[in-house]
Design a protein around this nucleic acid. Sequence first.
DNA 1: ACTACATGGTCAAGCAGCTTGACCATTTCG
DNA 2: CGAAATGGTCAAGCTGCTTGACCATGTAGT
Lengths: 148, 148
Amino acid sequence: MQNSEAMALSAALLAVAGELTRRIHDGVVARGFEGVRPAHGFAFTRLAPDGATVTDLAVHLGMTKQAASQLVDELVRKGYAERRPHPEDARARLVVLTESGWACTRAAEEAAAEAVRAWGADLEEAELRALGEKLLRIAPNGPIRPAW
Amino acid sequence: MQNSEAMALSAALLAVAGELTRRIHDGVVARGFEGVRPAHGFAFTRLAPDGATVTDLAVHLGMTKQAASQLVDELVRKGYAERRPHPEDARARLVVLTESGWACTRAAEEAAAEAVRAWGADLEEAELRALGEKLLRIAPNGPIRPAW
DNA sequence: ACTACATGGTCAAGCAGCTTGACCATTTCG
DNA sequence: CGAAATGGTCAAGCTGCTTGACCATGTAGT
C-alpha cells in the first residue's frame, strides 16, 4: 500500500471519527443532557460496570489524576456521578454513576446507534458488521486518548 | 443492529482513531519535526495543494478565524508556512507551505503508512483496502472537527 | 514493630488553545 | 457613491489541562 493511500485511509477514518463524535454528542444533548462533553462519555464507559477510582480513570483517559479528579468534580456537580468510600482501601474513593449518569449512558448508546444507522444509507448491514469486526480486531487495549 | 453493538462499533472506531493519531504524531516527531500538534496536520492537508486563506482554514478546521490565525502564526513562527499577499483580493492573504512544511507533510504520510501497515498483523491487505473503501463512502465532506 | 517507601487523592498555580467582542481595510452590491 | 459584506487582526477572558507540593493510608524491609 502506497503512502498516499494510507494517508487517504487515515484521513477518512479520522473524519468519520470526528463526525461520529459530533453526532453522538448532539444526540445526547438532544435527549436533554446538557453540559456534557465527549470526554465525559469515555469516563462513563469506564465507570459504568462497577465504578472506578480516580487513578483508574486517569489511566483510561490518558491524563493526569489531577485532571481526572477535576473531571469527576464536574460530573458530581452535574449529578452524573458520586464519590463513595472504597470498600477495600481507605485511601481510595470509588466513583460510581448515579441514576442520572446511567440514563445519560443509555442516551449515548441510542445516539450512537442512530449515528451508525445513518451509515446504512451508504453501507449494507453486512458491510457494517464487517467494518465493526475489522475495527475491533485492530483496536488497541490501552488508554483512550484524545485524537487531536 | 442493537444499541450495544453500535456502541461497541463506535468505541472501537474512536479507539482506533485515537491510536492512529498518536502514532502519526509520534512518527512525525521521530522524523525530527518538533513542536507540531495533530491539529497542524489537518491544517497541512488544507494548505497543501495551493495554499488557503485563514478563513478557509477556519472553516476546514471547524474553529473561529481568530483561532485559525493564531494557528497560522504558530506555523509561520516554526517555519512551516508563510503568508503571502493574495493575488486576487487585497484584503486576503494566502497561506502557503514552506519547503519545511512540505517535508513535514511527507513525514506525516510516511508515519501514516507505517501505522496502517502495523494493522497488517491483524488484517489481510485486501481487508485493509475494503476497510478504507467503506470509510471513504461514509466519510463526511464538511469540516474536520476535533473528535473529543 | 518501626521505619521507609509506594500509592490514592487533593489543593494551588500556571499555561495553551480556544472563544467572544471590537475594530480596520478592502471588496461587492443597490 | 454609500452601505453592507467579507478577510483579517488585536485584545481580553475562559476552560481544561499540566506541573509541583502536600497529606493520608497502605505495603515492605529489617
